[in-house]
Design a protein around this nucleic acid. Structure first.
Lengths: 207, 207
DNA sequence: ACACAATATGACCGATCGGTCGTTTTTATT
DNA sequence: AATAAAAACGACCGATCGGTCATATTGTGT
């Protein structure tokens, strides 16, 4: 059933969500002002309420949109690397590239959303937590693939925590301190860790 | 010169700053509403402007206050450990205790402040960046003491980044996912790393 | 005793917030 | 062609925001 109205609506929807995620990566989902968002997306403020009942509905969809963007920019490119320790490191490098390339003006939507909602119970926190669980679960799964192939000796959950922590920290360190140094530290930390845990370090670059 | 007015003013000042740092650890320095802060501190809203010209001045002093709190709760206790690798790990454990004990309702003032201001240029960002530089500089200095004593073989700046990243991540992971697991991961990550880098791992606990 | 400075207050201001409402324009269905 | 629904808008609402101001109270130095 071709529904042109829906099609047109979806275009506005996508444009607004793109602006929303970009703005939220800077000011947070709460700092998202519907007025400024309207200006950024080139629509009128009241036009929102044809698509979302209130701000919270928009926030929930923004989380969804950001999750899809993360899959597209990080998980998909890293899937080019063969399963095992090389794909684990490819995930880390794809993440750092996401930050370094400035895909989002604020660096990382989920990093901001986590910090903002970690002590604000409600549907948005739940949705953010679920997105983080999905991502960390995938990271852990990728590590486990490497363990099963004999390319890593590690506790997948423990190593996933470490990779996540060392990657996330690059966001603030690159913006608040020296950018290149922060990314170099983030890359080296995971590379050294993986090489030390791997019986086959030759699969990874030396530096 | 005993000045009772100043003394009384200082008490209000301290009470307000304490509330401000606690509230900001949850909602951020921008989410700090002067109205709600007044209520939390038990004074009238306009009473602020006898102590601070505007909100920004309060934010700057809140950063200062939080920095002193960090020294008192993290750096001072860890100084009980002997210089070297044991003090490095003591710093990490003191930090995790700060988070676990819920000294601040939001977990970590500086973590929130970093994420909030890393792309908002101005005096507050500069002050936050300076506080983070001071802390990371101290962390690096402590690592270097261990290196100089032959208790660690590491690049101090690199290792300081890793310890900082692995510690900070415990804030969101403990609140958004499982608390005890997050702290266990954060502790084990640094412990394993230090033991691997140390010619004298017997100085550290085994687990 | 007196003048002055610090502390603190309540009333009030313009701006912006999230959100509502009535209306117009566009488009798919019948 | 008629109709119903979706999309989008401008005007407007009460609440809250950061901040000002005139004023009352209190403690300090001379």
């Amino acid at each position: 059933m071709a529904d042109g109205r829906r099609v047109r609506g979806q275009r506005s929807r996508e444009a607004i969500l793109g602006s929303a995620v970009a703005l939220a990566s800077v000011d947070g989902l709460g700092g998202l002002s519907l007025g400024r968002l309207a200006e950024a997306a080139g629509v009128s403020k009241s036009g929102f309420f044809a698509h979302w009942r209130d701000k919270q509905e928009l926030q929930l969809d923004a989380v969804e949109w950001a999750a899809r963007q993360w899959v597209e920019h990080v998980i998909v490119p890293a899937s080019a690397a063969p399963k095992g320790v090389r794909r684990v490191f490819a995930l880390h490098e794809a993440r750092l590239a996401f930050y370094r390339d400035g895909v989002l003006p604020g660096g990382c939507f989920f990093f901001v959303a986590q910090v903002e909602f970690d002590d604000k119970p409600g549907p948005v926190k739940d949705r953010v937590a679920q997105a983080m669980n999905d991502w960390l679960g995938y990271l852990e799964h990728t590590v486990r693939e490497a363990v099963d192939r004999g390319e890593l000796r590690a506790d997948p959950a423990q190593l996933a925590y470490e990779i996540e922590a060392l990657g996330e920290a690059a966001v603030t360190h690159s913006r608040l301190r020296d950018g290149p140094t922060a990314f170099a530290h983030a890359r080296r930390a995971v590379l050294d860790r993986l090489r030390a845990l791997s019986p086959t370090p030759e699969l990874l670059p030396e530096d």
